[in-house]
Design a protein around this nucleic acid. Structure first.
Lengths: 208, 208
DNA sequence: TGGTGTGAACCGATTCACAGCA
DNA sequence: TGCTGTGAATCGGTTCACACCA
């Protein structure tokens, strides 16, 4: 312990977590760094380094006890309780995200949606009500949301994000393209689908 | 030139490219590394290092001529022609991706979709026909697709990816959770939405 | 003066290699 | 024997600092 694990380390921990929770083995079974490495596409040494940031829970000759590993990883990612999320922008992508099964199965719960379109406001999708984005800041104070997903067009993204920040949201998953400004204490992750394709395309053309 | 630019370098180049193409300035105008840095969230030194991988096209005291920069970046990412993509898995997410405006505006063209659901096969969405996934390998040989987007459930992802690989697809953008095996010469990028939220949630709880 | 290009210094993450333990 | 934990070595990307040029 002591030092700080890297961003990519966190990413790998999340992968280990999914692997062991999907594994369907008993909590008393063991898994080796070798196996975790193969299952997530990394190296065994890397897995061990990542895990020893949180103390030495492995057993020489046997590996890591699955029960202990689950406890550790559940704790790290607070998977033992539902995490509340709101979503801003109920277009095609927003709607798909509201219906995304992967969130529910990972203890993420979308509790409200916001949009600017009067045709949508007041309606519900997947049991989640769509609110007027104009009232977002006041509505948000009543909700216990910890994170926001932004799936509005690029043109209104900065405005929406400013509102979220002033409403106290500290973590944002953003699908709008382009660079957005947030205060230093706010965490924003950008998923830019065209840029992802650009990166792939580069590899296609430039790696022999 | 000479050395190889890093993966993150490619990512930044894609960001620079979007910035200058959205800028609406004349090709004869100039942009500085400073400005590109601010607009994309990096440092000026980083921008200059990235660009000099492709020769020295900057002019001391003035910056980079936008026209030249556009030519360079268009060339790097082959933005001067339409890139053909297929999409496998027409669920909520798949449908949203088929309708995603950001692809069209970035010269990406979805030319075919595949699904296993007989209710969907034969229909069209956004003018794109949905084919039977069972015929994917033969259908693909007729199409001139360079990349594939995979938005099927995790349970069938590996199977689908194996088919894509044997049909000659070398670049895959995958939305199915979990680690997937591909031959070394195939490029696969994973976008795992739950893992993204996990990473954000970690930051929320562990960064003071 | 303002901004590029770049070697050198820095820094942090990954890998290696092996001691130690069940 | 098998696998963990970890210091040391390595590797590669980022930042620094400054010479150079318009």
């Amino acid at each position: 312990m002591g030092r700080k694990i890297s961003t990519s380390g966190i990413y790998r921990l999340a992968l280990y977590n999914r692997y062991i929770s999907d594994l369907g083995k008993d909590d008393s079974d063991y898994v080796s760094s070798q196996e975790l490495a193969r299952a997530t596409g990394h190296t065994a040494a890397q897995v061990r380094k990542d895990l020893t940031y949180y103390g030495s829970l492995g057993e020489p000759g046997k590996g890591y006890e699955i029960g202990k590993l689950k406890t550790l990883l559940t704790g790290i990612f607070n998977k033992d309780r539902i995490r509340n999320i709101i979503i801003v922008g109920v277009g095609n992508l927003g709607m798909a995200l509201m219906a995304y099964e992967g969130f529910k199965s990972q203890q993420f719960n979308i509790i409200a949606a916001f949009d600017i379109d009067v045709m949508k406001i007041g309606k519900s999708i997947e049991g989640v009500k769509i609110h007027d984005i104009a009232n977002m800041e006041t509505t948000l104070t009543d909700l216990n949301a910890e994170m926001a997903i932004v799936s509005v067009p690029a043109s209104s993204a900065q405005e929406v994000i400013d509102k979220l920040v002033s409403a106290g949201i500290k973590c944002i998953l953003n699908f709008a393209p382009g660079h957005l400004n947030v205060p230093e204490y706010v965490n924003i992750h950008n998923v830019d689908l065209s840029i992802e394709l650009d990166r792939l395309y580069y590899l296609l053309k430039n790696v022999e």
